[in-house]
Structure formats: C-alpha cells, structure tokens
Amino acid sequence: MITVTLTVNGQEETHSIEARETLADFLRERCNLTGTHLGCEHGACGACTVTINGLPARSCLTLAVMCEDRAVQTVEGTRGDPEMDLIRKHFHEAHGLQCGYCTPGMLLAARDILRRHKAPGEATIRKELSGHLCRCTGYVGIVEAIRRAGAELSDKS
C-alpha cells in the first residue's frame, strides 16, 4: 500500500491505496465522489473524464498514485463555475441528456471544447466530442447544447 495525497475539487485527499488503483476508483471509492461514472474502463467511452491540472483526462486510464500533488476536478467540483452553469443550462434546455450516465464526461468535455474553440459549429463539436459515447440521445441535443453555450459565451466576451 502507498499513501498518496492529491487535491480533489480544492480539498486535499490523503489515502492509503494499492498502486494499481485508478484515479476513477480513488474518486468514487475513497472520496465518495460518484459523479465520475465508469462506463468501459478502457478509455473508449469518456464517461469517467475529469480534469488533472486543468486538462481533461480519462480517470480510468490514470493511476491515482501518478496524480500525487496534482489538482483533480470532478463534475462535483464545477458547481458555481459560471462557465459550467451556462453549459448546464443549455444541456437542460436543449435536452442534452436522458439517463445522465455520460453527462459528467460530456459536461467536462463541453467546457474544454469551448475553451479551445470560440463559438464552434456543429462539425467541430462533433469531431471534438467523438471520444464520448451517449447511448440515449443520438447526440443531437448534446451538440446543440454545446453550440448554444458557445454562442452565448462568445456574445458575452
């Protein structure tokens, strides 16, 4: 067992873990942050996406022990983030989710897309979102939500 300390949503978390424990399991089992969802556990579905030092990452493809002294943000940590509140509003209004399993990953991906692309169009959003699977919506609502959020953000700036 190894004792690791990382920052999760602004709070220090120290736990004694096995080296093989993924960041996803660390977040869900040690920190009780079950907003991070595990779909495929091999990097294909995107549901477990979190940020590490601000960069979107697959928490199922990351060892918790490798995140020592890093800052991790999960979907729970985005409450009150004005950018994320706006994205959430558009997910709600454009029907960007149904069962919600993929949504935590979708939200974090959406914020990253809008940080790297100003008011992106459908083609850009679909290309950037290709690493996130949704089995309910057919993506139309998700893509539209991100497009609307991007348009509103660029109007504001």
Binding site: G46, L55, P56, A57, L61, D112, E128, G131, H132
Partner: peptide, 9 residues
C-alpha cells in the same frame, strides 16, 4: 490521434 483527453497525456 484518439481523443483530446488521451492526447493531453
């Protein structure tokens, strides 16, 4: 290559 979250690392 793959997806952005993978390209980041």
């Amino acid at each position: 290559i793959s997806y952005r979250a993978v390209r980041n690392f």
